[in-house]
Write a protein that binds this DNA or RNA. Structure first.
Lengths: 196, 196
DNA sequence: CCTGTGCATTGAACTAGAACAAGAAATAAA
DNA sequence: TTTATTTCTTGTTCTAGTTCAATGCACAGG
């Protein structure tokens, strides 16, 4: 399956589109490969892309005033990455970083090509609105989990959600995502392994 | 200022609308008053409204398997409340509760009237998309704060963001929002008061 | 006016997780 | 293959925050 087939399949999960509509979509996307460990968006920059992940893995993270780094999101195959804050509309600089963790293949929107898509095939508005709602739901659930769950529970939840990630990314990134120290994650994993 | 003037003013902060457009908006909204301590949405129900808060205060919360209650959001004047999860599109039951904490006045959309609005005045799509991005940004920042900040820092941050809420809602609700125990919030406040 | 019921405060004992330090593995580089 | 760099593990000490229990406080209902 090539990249364009993949995005067509992915987007059709929420709304059904005609051949013509999908062709418009595909004509407006730019294919791009990015090597691992590339920072695609630095804090302070304005994010001018919205990328569909064809292959690879990325992390999106903040750095706070004390230098603490916190991973907000991992993105893998079939996910979208961007600074989804409203910075795109306000044109305000981003507070986040986006970095590839593996060699990546993308299909990319510029803000203009996305507007163009909505103009030429307005039914995509709906699909992207649904994606946005989904993203919000996921973030909200994660907020909830972060507040109420213990480190062990959060890790188990993470494994259910992203079963392959522990094999793909360094463990201290997962710790950062879960909001616990890498040392403590190691201890949690040891305790879980013993129980099995 | 009456309720309709208020919503017109509020929505015009992001996109400018003509008189005609605002009239269409107003004609599709239903005015409603709800007494305090009313649960407007129970877990398991399908949320069939999107409410603009003209006056009053509400909380939106989850209950987890152990019975722990966590407040995800306070909504006051000029905010929108709904189950913003994609349940509206999926028609899946909600996991959250929405409850008034004071007597409230609303302007309310049903899913149909909102669709109707977009049909008759499509430029509102943009305004609501911006609102959604804003909401996502706020949730994401809150997630970040929850992970990296201490209880004291989170409370100070809360005060900056919602300076009037401590006078309006019970303190244990604020504790629940911050993800700390009510006893500990009391101690945090005491320590802060001493410093002044 | 009393009285119950829920809320805030305070203190004491306890615990999940952090911070620090030092070694062991693993990966990359040379 | 050896060396260097990064990541993971393990133990120890320390702290922010929880849990439990008791007391005081406020205001709603009779």
């Amino acid at each position: 399956m090539d990249a364009y087939q993949q995005i067509n399949h992915s987007i059709s999960r929420y709304v059904h589109f005609s051949e013509q509509e999908l062709e418009i979509l595909n004509s407006l996307l730019e294919y791009k490969e990015v090597p691992k460990k590339t920072i695609m968006l630095h804090e302070g920059e304005i994010c001018n892309f919205e990328a569909f992940v064809v292959e690879g893995c990325l992390r999106k993270y903040y750095i706070d005033d004390k230098g603490a780094e916190v991973i907000l999101q991992f993105a893998t195959e079939d996910a979208w990455v961007s600074d989804i804050s409203f910075s795109i509309y306000e044109n305000s600089p981003s507070r986040i970083f986006i970095e590839t963790l593996e060699d990546c293949k993308f299909l990319i929107f510029s803000p203009e090509s996305k507007e163009e898509l909505f103009k030429r095939a307005p039914r995509f508005e709906r699909a992207f609105r649904i994606l946005l709602y989904r993203h919000l739901t996921v973030t909200q659930n994660r907020l909830f989990d972060t507040i109420v769950k213990s480190a062990t529970e959060k890790y188990l939840e993470f494994l259910e959600h992203y079963p392959t990630l522990p094999q793909r990314v360094a463990q201290h990134y997962i710790a950062s995502y879960l909001g616990i120290s890498p040392e403590f994650l190691s201890k949690v994993r040891k305790k879980l392994a013993k129980k099995q």
